[in-house]
Structures are given as C-alpha cells and as structure tokens.
C-alpha cells in the first residue's frame, strides 16, 4: 500500500529526527574552531610531543603506542566532556534546549542525538590520531582493537553523562570555566600518563577517576591487547552516577 500524505501535521520517523539533529550537532562541533583545537589539534600535539620526548615516564611498552593510547583518551575527554559541556551549557542559555523540547525531537531524542554526534566526531578523531600514531610508529595489538573500541565508547558515555550534569546545573560561563579547568587537571590524572606512574596516593585516586580509568583502559587494550574489566567497571560506575544525577538535577533553562 502506498504512503498517504498526512491530513494533519505529523512527526518524521524517530530515526530520521535523531539523525537530523545528530548531523546538525556534528557539523556544529566540526565547524567550531575552538572545539577543533581542543578535540583534534591538542591531542595530536600531545601525541607528537609524548612520542618524540623521553619525559614523562610512560612505563613499559613502546612509547609511540603509549602516546597514541593517551591521545585517544584525551580525544574522548575533549569531545565527550569539555566540548559537550560547553556547547550544551550555551545552548541551554540561548533557549535551544527548551525550543527543541517543544518539537517532535523531544528531550530523549536530543540526548540520543548528542551521543550519536559525539561518537561520530570520536570516529573521526580515532582515524586522524590513529593515522598520526601509525606514522610515528604505533602498532596496536590486533586482539586489542575490540576492547579499545569498548573502552572508547564506555569512556564517551561516562564523560557525556558528566558533561550534561555540569551543563545542566551551572550557568554557561561557569560551565566554560569549569570544563576547561577540569580538562587541564584530568590531563595529569591518568589520561596521558598511566596512573601507576603517578606519585603515592595520587595513583590510587587517579585510577578511580574516570580520566585514569579511561586512560588505563585504552592503554591496556592498545598496548597489551588486554580486556580492562576493572577500568570498565569504574567507567560504568561514573557513567551511572553522572546519568542519575543529571536526570535528577538537569535544568533545561538557565
């Protein structure tokens, strides 16, 4: 039976709505110069710098492998956390979230679209940073590809949840300041440098933070081809806590 034109306004199918929004958000992310700097240029610079230098100590393993793994973890933090927190915070202030809440996309569709957009940008980051790492001599363990992808997805989910918690509870200017500050702090808490290379109690603390869990998980998969179950558990824990708190405290308008 052929499709019949609706006699009253109707919503597009759910998948089309989510893909339309995800595509729009992805283009906004990629067209934003500052965002590109944080999500691609800085991880690439970190990758090159860590590979060609001998400090800091990255532990056992090929330095190019460890640097590439750290850069991939940094890319996740940049896109899923810093980028999402800032864009969502300013969208909230401009009333974008409220307006979208009145459309067929709805709030659930918006959140799904944000996750799809983050994963799309992350895919691009993996290709670019992977190619750069390969050019610098990095060679991931073949058996580590699947756990590497799982680590990146779990890390993205945890950091998106935390980004929405931040963006939905603070004013846009505060989100900008806090997200950038945390990006800098997390760099030194297990993202680029393995947590077991950190001094004393800081190593334990960092291993329990999403930054340390993500960095260690990516390194375990990329360098050793291992399945980092403990780090995944930490990421799932942070993701659940972040999602529950965001669900409870997220405000759709400033």
């Amino acid at each position: 039976m052929s499709a019949v034109a609706p006699d009253r306004p109707a919503a597009a199918p759910a998948r089309r709505r989510v893909l339309a929004r995800a595509s729009f958000e992805t283009r906004i992310l990629l067209a934003n110069g500052e965002q590109l700097l944080v999500s691609l240029v800085l991880p690439a610079l970190a990758l090159v710098a860590l590979t060609v230098s001998s400090v800091p100590d990255l532990g056992p393993g090929a330095r190019a492998d460890l640097a590439t793994a750290g850069a991939l973890a940094l890319a996740v933090v940049s896109t899923a956390f810093t980028g999402q927190a800032i864009s969502t915070g300013f969208d909230r202030r401009a009333g974008v979230l409220r307006l979208l809440g009145t459309t067929p996309l709805g709030r659930g569709g918006l959140l799904t679209a944000k996750c799809v957009a983050v994963l799309s940008v992350l895919g691009l980051q993996v290709v670019v940073l992977g190619a750069l790492g390969g050019a610098l001599g990095a060679r991931p363990q073949a058996g580590g590809i699947l756990p590497l992808l799982v680590s990146l997805v779990l890390g993205s989910a945890a950091f998106v949840a935390l980004a929405l918690l931040l963006a939905g509870t603070l004013r846009a200017e505060a989100v900008l300041a806090v997200a950038n500050l945390l990006w800098v702090l997390l760099l030194g808490l297990g993202v680029l440098v393995p947590t077991d290379r950190l001094p004393g109690a800081l190593a334990t603390v960092a291993a329990l933070l999403p930054s340390g869990a993500l960095g260690d998980a990516v390194r375990t998969a990329f360098v050793d081809g291992g399945w980092p179950w403990a780090q995944w558990a930490v990421l799932v824990g942070w993701g659940l806590v972040g999602a529950l708190l965001a669900r409870r405290y997220f405000r759709w308008s400033d």
Partner: peptide, 14 residues
Amino acid sequence: RARVGVMLQEGGLA
C-alpha cells in the same frame, strides 16, 4: 508536538 509551532521569547536558536 508535530502539530504545535512555538516561537520562544529568547528565540532558542543555536
């Protein structure tokens, strides 16, 4: 929501 059009005071434009 597909049958309702909304123009907010603050615009709501990205």
